[in-house]
């Protein structure tokens, strides 16, 4: 596969390491609340595992070491968009 890196252009997926759903960005912050156990369980274990456009995390280990959010169709492997995970994370309101 070829991942069109937003900063580096198209690169062979062999340079990357796959992690999984981009939902892993949304780590719960409510560790002190009563719902924490359920929220962390859902966060870590339950997957939509969509047959269609999947937002997923790839790490450019043999490249610029950026984490990317790749939107890729799991039926055709067509890649619709590639974003820096750091940007996505910030856009979702995460900071420090």
């Amino acid at each position: 596969m070829i991942i069109n890196h937003p900063l580096l252009g198209p690169r062979d997926s062999e340079e990357f390491v796959y992690l999984g759903s981009a939902d892993l960005i949304n780590r719960p912050t409510n560790w002190e609340s009563e719902e924490a156990a359920e929220d962390f369980y859902q966060y870590l274990y339950i997957r939509e595992n969509i047959a269609g456009d999947n937002r997923e995390l790839w790490y450019h280990e043999q490249g610029d070491q950026s984490w990317l959010v790749v939107t890729r169709c799991t039926l055709t492997h067509e890649i619709k968009s590639v974003e820096l995970a750091q940007d996505v994370s910030r856009a979702q309101g995460r900071s420090k």
Binding site: L57, Y59, K96
Partner: peptide
């Protein structure tokens, strides 16, 4: 190292 990059870039990007 990969895990730490994940934590930094994905979880706490502004640290």
């Amino acid at each position: 190292y990969r895990h730490m990059q994940f934590c930094h870039q994905c979880l706490w990007p502004d640290l």
